[in-house]
Design a protein around this nucleic acid. Structure first.
Lengths: 170, 170
DNA sequence: TAAATCATGTAAGACGTTACATGATTTG
DNA sequence: CAAATCATGTAACGTCTTACATGATTTA
């Protein structure tokens, strides 16, 4: 699965589950995320399989931290994943499926509202992204640049469609 | 969940699970898909909940077909889903996560190969899409147009990155 | 007669979400 | 003292994938 590999990838340096959650938001949140309740058991499983090892560390505040690091096997596994080429994503876009059914409603206003909703969400996403991109490393930045281009294309499309819908209604 | 709603959306006219699988490929394959082994039990569940009803029909070849159609409740459910606005997709792009870790490999060739792999996949996707778009209805076509724009943006990005990588290596 | 297509499903397991449970430390 | 943050998890449930099982009809 991919979550395991993403966690291996994030563990460039030792980190706890809690740390990783934050790295998720910061480094790959644009492409992937997972709740702590999924991260913790997955780390455990990786340790059982020998891809990670862990030890406890006292925390400055709160309970003890369980800090994980990659083993050699873990690094091997990550390398193989990266070298195996781009994973084929099932790519699900439920909102585009919605769009393709929206015609049945026979309600142009609903379609327009729907598109406006998408548009404003994308504007917000793009803004967040621009702040992020300023501080990213090269390979990380590649992904962010693509995300930005995608969001821009989406905005162009939305404006396009909204305009043609409004034109059609006089 | 969304699969249930997508199935409700696809059932504009009565159809069997097998039919729906094909419609999936044709109408929403670009945004969503599901194997028959997931479609069959989901249809059953929708029937239990009263959103679909079904009856058997003899087939011209092969076993009897179970043909489903929406009930009034099913239509209501679909309408609510569509009117509730765009669903927030979790949007996972495992290949972009891969990309952001690829730097650790310290191997520009691997990165280049990776990007070339993505590029050629996208070219193929775009070609398939163009054929599809020719015969789609308005609302369906909106989604396809967006997909096309996204693929184009991805190609621009890939060429961009590949070029700058090659330039950097002389 | 072999392969493709039509047509239905079950089972096991992996993956993911949401809700719940616990408790220390720091900041307002 | 209340709320936020640090820190770990479990449980239940829902979703999705992969593999398996069955059998009729049509086409090459």
């Amino acid at each position: 699965m991919s979550l395991e590999h993403v966690l291996l990838g994030l563990l460039r340096r030792p980190a706890s589950g809690y740390d990783l959650k934050r790295e998720f938001e910061e480094r790959v949140g644009q492409f992937w995320s997972a709740p702590l309740s999924q991260i913790y058991p997955t780390l455990r499983r990786l340790e059982e399989r020998g891809l990670l090892r862990s030890h406890e560390e006292p925390s400055t505040r709160g309970p003890a931290r369980r800090v994980y690091e990659r083993t050699l096997d873990g690094w091997e596994e990550l390398r193989e994943w990266l070298e195996s080429g781009p994973v084929r994503g099932r790519e699900r876009f439920p909102h585009l499926a919605q769009l393709s059914f929206l015609g049945e409603l026979q309600s142009p206003e609903t379609t327009v509202e729907f598109l406006a909703g998408l548009r404003s969400r994308w504007v917000a996403d793009l803004e967040r992204l621009r702040k992020l991109a300023a501080t990213a490393a090269f390979h990380a930045e590649l992904g962010l640049r693509l995300r930005a281009r995608l969001l821009e294309a989406q905005l162009v499309w939305a404006d396009d469609v909204l305009q043609s819908l409004q034109a059609a209604r006089g």
